[in-house]
Design a protein around this nucleic acid. Structure first.
Lengths: 333, 333
DNA sequence: ACATTCATTACAAACGGTTTCATTGCAAGC
DNA sequence: GCTTGCAATGAAACCGTTTGTAATGAATGT
């Protein structure tokens, strides 16, 4: 590969001049510029980013840590991050962490060893658990989607509690009183938030919350199917299931089907996230829209701000959600 | 950030010794090694990857170009690539190209400007169209999934023609004779391959191929829904739909439902890819399993070989597919 | 005619490591 | 006691760019 020296020699100038031909062409005389560009073209010269970045001490790269890249919701957030990244000429290193603390710690180290300028974390683990210095450490870090807005670093997500309350309110408005809850993993902040929101609406409506009607399992279709099986076997009088993700709801639909329920007549099922497949379920899923792409976009914008300004904005963006009414929740007579 | 100089000074040795403490500790005496590591630890020294990579003239990074990261099939391939990448200590830059030639060209340039060591392309565009030197250029390149096995560079995928023929054979074996085809985008190699496989089985069985029963549209649920609407409006006597992807099939199920078909009794529908959601459709989708993760793993392994050996293996891996029989295809009486 | 200014370009240092080669000191062999 | 060999370490070059500073020469002003 030709390098700057070669171009300089061919054009009869110094390497500095070649460099300026790219970075600051107005500083060069018409003729020199032309000569340099011709030489570069002839030698097919492409400046080495490696050398450039080394000198600039920047990587122009942001690390995105995803618990599971094959999860459609995360994939959509990454898609939003991407969009803003290319706009701002950043590259994205994507790491599928499998929600593993050790791998996430290595990820954070990539900033300290200057392999990346900053980290966007889609997982729930806060920076303080990922770095020996805990709260003290000040690397560019943004947490998205599974944001816990108590930390010192910026977060982007939705108000899970309010969104869950909204859906619960809707179920109540449709006449449901005995509502089962198909929760995700019990120890997750999102799960607790959404459960809290669910209870909020219940108590607001004066409907007692039934601890027995809650089943926890993985945030997946298989998890939803298992949880629904257990719950439906245990409580036969439920009129609706409040599912904490669309995938859980899709699993629940399968389970209810297999149990002989006619949907949505015998049982109403609500989802959460609004993934594309929900629209194509039978029955089409009533759910809560979560602006996944937009969350990614905002997260990356925030990251860009931090990297440009070296400042750490203390923002906790809560993007708006929406109730998406389709057919999986039925009004009781 | 502390650098090698500081550690050297504190430990009372030269920078070279500190460097060796990491790269070749056996060369150092017990006492020096200990002193150096203690000093490094005290200063929280982390070697700058940027400097290391610059000197090594490697990036330890592979670019993955994905037409659409939010597509579950591609996401699973990326997941497989990831797995092998971490094993081999490579980082992945993921670029969502939107199947755009200009963006892909920029991606390929990343190798020439040493931002990445190689490129894995999940899109259909071959390297020869992405580089001014066309066939001549020899950058580490692997094409996966949408592989066109005619090129000079390695590819990993399935035998689309054979897999499609297998599914068509199955439909025929279930007694179907009037089979509609919901194809993806007409100009794609995969589409043509799968269509060819479909025809292969038909002619093998002596069943005439009906040009009129083919509808092209996007490889998406919306595309499948549209195509199915058009086809079902035009030809009311079909007993089965051969869909070129699970997403298309899912869209078709919706369309058939809305048209009043009772599935699978009135109409059989087959998919392709075996995405997770297919299992949760109503009815559960009969489809062709495509080993997406494995395709990613093999692609990345190949890339590692190329990067290690500087050789360009002339392999075209065809991984095995499987018929996944569920309920969306019914046996005709 | 001389000082001043400005545009243009070259020189060399710097970025933070790694690695080659040279040097030192010590132990073993004769 | 002198040579030889080896282990341990240091000095310095190097990777390919950018950029601050200096140098050059032409143009301008008085």
């Amino acid at each position: 590969m030709a390098q700057i020296r070669d171009v300089a020699k061919l054009a009869g100038v110094s390497p500095a001049t070649v460099s300026r031909a790219y970075s600051n062409p107005s500083k060069l005389s018409e003729s020199t510029l032309h000569r340099v560009l011709a030489a570069a073209d002839e030698l097919k010269y492409k400046p080495s980013s490696l050398a450039q970045l080394f000198r600039e001490k920047r990587t122009n790269t942001v690390l995105v840590m995803v618990p599971d890249i094959a999860n459609v919701l995360f994939a959509r957030v990454v898609s939003g991050i991407e969009r803003v990244a290319v706009e701002n000429k950043y590259n994205l290193i994507v790491s599928d962490t499998g929600d593993n603390a050790a791998i996430e710690t290595v990820g954070v180290e990539m900033v300290e060893t200057s392999r990346a300028d900053g980290v966007i974390q889609l997982g729930e683990r806060p920076l303080s658990e990922l770095h020996p210095e805990g709260e003290q450490c000040a690397i560019p870090f943004v947490q998205a989607i599974s944001a816990d807005p108590r930390g010192r670093y910026p977060t982007v997500g939705i108000d899970d509690r309010k969104a869950a309350a909204m859906m619960a309110r809707y179920l109540l408005s449709q006449g449901h009183r005995r509502i089962g809850v198909l929760a995700g993993l019990e120890n997750r902040v999102v799960t607790q938030e959404r459960l809290a929101g669910f209870k909020d609406s219940l108590s607001m409506a004066g409907v007692p919350f039934d601890e027995e009607a809650v089943e926890y399992d993985a945030y997946s279709m298989a998890g939803g199917e298992r949880a629904a099986m257990r719950l439906l076997a245990r409580k036969r009088d439920l009129t609706a299931l409040f599912c904490m993700s669309d995938e859980i709801a899709i699993g629940a639909i399968r389970a209810a089907h297999d149990q002989g329920f006619a949907l949505p007549h015998d049982l109403s099922i609500s989802g959460f996230d609004n993934i594309e497949f929900g629209k194509y379920c039978t029955p089409p899923l009533t759910t809560v829209m979560q602006p996944a792409e937009q969350i990614g976009e905002v997260a990356m914008s925030l990251m860009c701000d931090m990297l440009r300004g070296q400042t750490m904005p203390q923002v906790h963006e809560m993007l708006p959600t929406e109730l998406v009414v389709r057919d999986s929740v039925q009004k009781l007579p």
